[in-house]
């Protein structure tokens, strides 16, 4: 009963709010473009099996280096694998990593940020030191170290991305939590006898989460690029799993004779990062109260 009343924002209101945000995104040309790209990328990854009948990993030595044709929409690579299928299935991996890693980073950043901001001063200082230490490593160095220790894998990519992203999110949450810690509505909650968990989840979190959700949406393309980059270097997804970065690498070797392999690997990376970047920037503008609506 109590929970029901406390989390009560009527769902109708929430739906209406999402609709309003969507309309405002679509009104911005950049936002509409970004949203369209993102929708296309997501749908093509989800329905990869429907859109193509080729297996992304099946070798066909007889059809090596086939240029784009009706049969192979993007051609084939040096092992005769259908590139269109590899791009679609690679999209699954890219998106899974991007969304999974961003989601995990968000959770980690929120939890650590709340602890640092609301906890005792010494813990705050210790955690800031840790965040700065992690931030001081270049991403590729961190990835190399981890891959050397564990071998290249999806999991390694995930861990690297989370490690790189968490400090940034945590810092933002921490700073805002620090401000809210002495806000009157938090004092009032303490005065009523609310537990720390309750104060953090009901009185602080909803008020600090907005900015990092937007930041996270702008970080998705960065993660896509990191995954592609690591896979290109052979530190990410293991062959024969399809990855845009790996396709790019396959094509890089044969760029003189078969340019289409590089195109097949590069184009989806460009379109996805562009789409998410435009969408993220429009989201930021839509939610920024200082930027007046142009009505």
């Amino acid at each position: 009963m109590s929970e029901q009343v406390l989390i009560d924002r009527p769902s109708r209101q929430r739906v209406a709010k999402i609709g309003r945000v969507l309309r405002r995104i679509l009104r911005e040309p950049l936002g509409a473009f970004g949203l369209t790209l993102v929708v296309i990328v997501v749908l093509s990854a989800v329905f990869a099996d429907v859109l193509t009948s080729y297996s992304p990993t099946k070798l066909a030595p007889a059809e090596r280096f086939a240029p784009a044709s009706l049969q192979h929409l993007l051609g084939t690579d040096h092992l005769g694998r259908d590139l269109f299928s590899r791009v679609l299935h690679g999209g699954r991996i890219a998106l899974a990593i991007a969304l999974g890693a961003t989601g995990l980073s968000l959770i980690g950043g929120i939890v650590l940020g709340l602890i640092a901001g609301y906890g005792p001063r010494w813990l705050d200082n210790l955690m800031l030191l840790l965040f700065d230490a992690i931030k001081s490593f270049p991403t590729v160095m961190l990835a190399l170290t981890l891959v050397t220790l564990t071998g290249p894998s999806l999991l390694a990519v995930l861990i690297v991305v989370v490690l790189v992203n968490v400090p940034g999110y945590a810092r933002i949450i921490r700073t805002q939590t620090l401000v809210l810690k002495s806000a009157e509505h938090v004092m009032a909650a303490r005065s009523m006898g609310a537990s720390t968990a309750r104060i953090l989840t009901i009185h602080i979190l909803p008020n600090v989460i907005g900015p990092i959700l937007i930041l996270a949406s702008m970080d998705i393309p960065v993660v896509v690029a990191i995954e592609a980059g690591l896979s290109f270097l052979g530190l990410g997804v293991r062959p024969p799993l399809p990855s845009w970065g790996a396709i790019l690498n396959d094509g890089f070797v044969n760029i003189r004779d078969s340019y289409w392999i590089v195109v097949a690997g590069g184009l989806p990376i460009i379109l996805t990062t562009l789409g998410f970047t435009f969408l993220g920037e429009t989201l930021r503008d839509v939610f920024d109260p200082r930027l007046k609506r142009r009505e």
Binding site: S2, D8, R9, A183, E184, H185, M192
Partner: peptide
């Protein structure tokens, strides 16, 4: 602060129910 002492994301119903929930 009359407004600032109320948690901004909670409705009046939730605000008034909170002492009971706590």
């Amino acid at each position: 602060d009359p407004v600032g002492s109320l948690s901004p994301r909670l409705s009046v119903r939730s605000l008034l129910a909170e002492p009971f929930a706590i």
